Amino acid sequence: MIHHSDAGSRYTSFRLAEHLDAAGIATSIGSVGDAYDNALMESTIGLFKTELIKPRRPWKTLSDVELATAEYVAENNHYQAAKKPQVTTNI
């Protein structure tokens, strides 16, 4: 697993780095001043919030959010797999 972020102070702190390292999570920090470096992740998070988090507020527990997130990811992965064109070869 990789934790990717911008170069903001909360993401470059020693405390966060130690926490991620203890959990076995690698860190990745985008280049400074590059607005496009993190664009895909920002877009993905925005879609996640729009489609799942905001419409179902208020959340009662963290477990509810975790379960809903797992279901959301599984549903979207299944949808994406179903959309892939089937490759056939005629030999």
Score class of each variant (00 low, 15 high):
residue 1 M to E: 15
residue 1 M to T: 13
residue 2 I to E: 12
residue 2 I to G: 13
residue 3 H to V: 08
residue 4 H to L: 05
residue 5 S to H: 12
residue 5 S to F: 08
residue 7 A to S: 14
residue 8 G to A: 06
residue 8 G to I: 01
residue 8 G to W: 01
residue 9 S to V: 07
residue 9 S to Y: 02
residue 9 S to A: 02
residue 10 R to S: 05
residue 12 T to M: 10
residue 13 S to M: 01
residue 14 F to P: 11
residue 14 F to Q: 15
residue 14 F to K: 14
residue 15 R to P: 00
residue 16 L to T: 07
residue 16 L to W: 06
residue 18 E to G: 07
residue 18 E to R: 14
residue 18 E to P: 00
residue 19 H to S: 05
residue 20 L to P: 07
residue 20 L to D: 09
residue 22 A to N: 06
residue 23 A to C: 12
residue 25 I to L: 03
residue 27 T to G: 07
residue 27 T to E: 10
residue 28 S to K: 03
residue 28 S to W: 05
residue 29 I to W: 05
residue 29 I to G: 09
residue 29 I to F: 04
residue 30 G to I: 04
residue 30 G to H: 10
residue 31 S to R: 15
residue 32 V to W: 11
residue 33 G to Q: 10
residue 33 G to V: 04
residue 33 G to A: 09
residue 33 G to W: 03
residue 34 D to F: 01
residue 34 D to P: 01
residue 35 A to E: 04
residue 37 D to V: 11
residue 37 D to S: 15
residue 38 N to A: 00
residue 39 A to T: 07
residue 40 L to A: 11
residue 40 L to M: 09
residue 41 M to A: 14
residue 41 M to G: 15
residue 42 E to F: 02
residue 42 E to P: 02
residue 42 E to A: 02
residue 42 E to K: 02
residue 42 E to N: 01
residue 42 E to W: 02
residue 43 S to V: 06
residue 43 S to M: 00
residue 43 S to D: 03
residue 43 S to I: 03
residue 44 T to F: 06
residue 46 G to M: 01
residue 47 L to I: 03
residue 48 F to V: 01
residue 48 F to S: 00
residue 48 F to W: 11
residue 49 K to E: 15
residue 49 K to L: 10
residue 49 K to W: 09
residue 49 K to C: 11
residue 50 T to C: 08
residue 51 E to L: 01
residue 52 L to Y: 06
residue 52 L to H: 04
residue 52 L to Q: 09
residue 53 I to A: 09
residue 53 I to C: 06
residue 54 K to I: 07
residue 54 K to D: 13
residue 55 P to H: 04
residue 55 P to Y: 05
residue 57 R to E: 14
residue 58 P to Y: 05
residue 58 P to C: 02
residue 60 K to F: 12
residue 60 K to G: 09
residue 61 T to A: 14
residue 61 T to W: 13
residue 61 T to R: 15
residue 64 D to Q: 12
residue 65 V to F: 04
residue 66 E to L: 09
residue 66 E to W: 02
residue 67 L to N: 03
residue 68 A to I: 01
residue 68 A to M: 02
residue 69 T to A: 01
residue 69 T to R: 01
residue 69 T to L: 05
residue 72 Y to M: 03
residue 72 Y to C: 04
residue 73 V to S: 08
residue 73 V to Q: 04
residue 74 A to T: 09
residue 74 A to W: 03
residue 75 E to K: 13
residue 75 E to D: 15
residue 75 E to F: 13
residue 75 E to W: 12
residue 75 E to G: 11
residue 76 N to Q: 11
residue 76 N to Y: 08
residue 76 N to R: 05
residue 77 N to K: 05
residue 78 H to V: 00
residue 78 H to S: 08
residue 78 H to D: 06
residue 79 Y to D: 10
residue 79 Y to F: 07
residue 80 Q to F: 07
residue 80 Q to Y: 08
residue 80 Q to M: 09
residue 82 A to I: 00
residue 83 K to I: 03
residue 83 K to P: 00
residue 84 K to P: 00
residue 84 K to G: 01
residue 84 K to D: 04
residue 85 P to I: 11
residue 86 Q to V: 14
residue 87 V to M: 12
residue 87 V to N: 13
residue 88 T to M: 15
residue 88 T to W: 14
residue 89 T to S: 08
residue 89 T to P: 00
residue 89 T to M: 03
residue 89 T to N: 10
residue 90 N to Y: 12
residue 90 N to H: 10
residue 90 N to F: 11
residue 90 N to P: 00
residue 91 I to E: 14
residue 91 I to Y: 13
residue 91 I to W: 12
